[in-house]
């Protein structure tokens, strides 16, 4: 203890100098818009670079596992493709005149305007109350603020900060994350959010108790926003009860995405997003 005191008295001048400079630097970076932007862009590039190095090293250890997953996904998609092709052929035979409508299920229709930017998660947490995902694609690759992020298994997050080569997304496992979602069985829409703690489950609110509901019902994105394509998988109802007095269910949703193993992701970009958003804001009269 005495040594520490001695150190401070001996180097007091230096410490005071450093302290004052740090304070003024903090003022510069926080009070001025231009300096703030440059500094935070730089520090984001820097930490993004570090994470990139780390994940390029640890990425090798997961390659075999990743391969297996891709293979199984591939196989699943192939079988699905074959099945749908057969189905299509039978319909073509049966109703040659009406083949253009009421034929294809939602999932086969290419959603107008949606494009997917493949990317990798280079940093990700699931243990905190406010979790974030860092992605190795940035404004140079077309990523913009507010775009959705999906994994092959389900919804993953939403972009909240973008630098040139990297971006940071709010994970679904973040208390600030809200998502408009829909029950596939009864078409009711509600809001999905996360209450902290358990990284495998989220909460679905505002589903009225008047509608029928069963465990294992599928929860998908509603398509009311331009952030995610409609009908994209989120998870399944794992449990529910009616012990509320506001007329809505208490629903727990088991998330289909395993956030502990996030690796390959896609950023969702909607070509007409700006048009839709500006139309909506301009037409709302308060």
């Amino acid at each position: 203890m005495w040594r520490i005191l001695q150190f401070f008295t001996r180097n007091g001048n230096l410490l005071l100098f450093i302290g004052l400079e740090v304070i003024s630097f903090a003022l510069i970076v926080n009070l001025n818009q231009k300096q703030h932007k440059i500094f935070h862009g730089f520090s984001m590039e820097f930490s993004g670079g570090l994470h990139q190095i780390r994940s390029s090293i640890t990425g090798y250890f997961n390659l075999s596992h990743e391969n297996e997953k891709l293979l199984s996904q591939n196989a699943k998609l192939k079988t699905e493709l074959i099945r749908f092709r057969d189905e299509l052929n039978t319909y073509k035979f049966r109703t040659p005149l009406r083949s253009n409508f009421s034929l294809l299920p939602d999932s086969l229709m290419p959603e107008p305007g949606f494009e997917f930017i493949p990317c990798q998660a280079i940093n990700n947490s699931i243990r905190k109350n406010y979790n974030y995902i860092t992605i190795n694609k940035g404004s140079r690759n077309g990523v913009m603020m507010g775009m959705g992020v999906i994994s092959p298994e389900g919804v993953a997050g939403r972009v909240i900060a973008v630098s040139k080569n990297y971006s940071v997304a709010l994970s679904v496992l973040n208390k600030r994350f809200k998502l408009s979602s829909r029950l596939l069985s009864n078409r009711n829409t509600g809001t999905l959010s996360w209450d902290g703690g358990d990284p495998y489950h989220a909460i679905l609110e505002f589903i009225p108790q008047t509608s029928p509901l069963e465990v294992n019902d599928t929860v998908v994105t509603s398509g009311f926003t331009t952030v995610f394509p409609p009908g994209y998988l989120i998870g399944r109802v794992s449990s529910f009860d009616k012990e509320t007095n506001d007329g809505f269910y208490n629903i727990r949703v088991e998330l289909n995405t395993d956030f502990g193993k996030l690796e390959n992701l896609y950023v969702v970009s909607q070509k007409f997003r700006a048009e839709i958003d500006s139309l909506e804001t301009s037409s709302v009269v308060e």
């Binding site: 005071l16 630097f25 510069i28 300096q35």
Partner: peptide
Amino acid sequence: ILIAFGAGLLVDIFSTNQAQGIQAF
């Protein structure tokens, strides 16, 4: 240097067309 910091900060505060904190630094 405390005087220098204070003087710089005062000029920073009263100068409108200049970024804040630079004079202090």
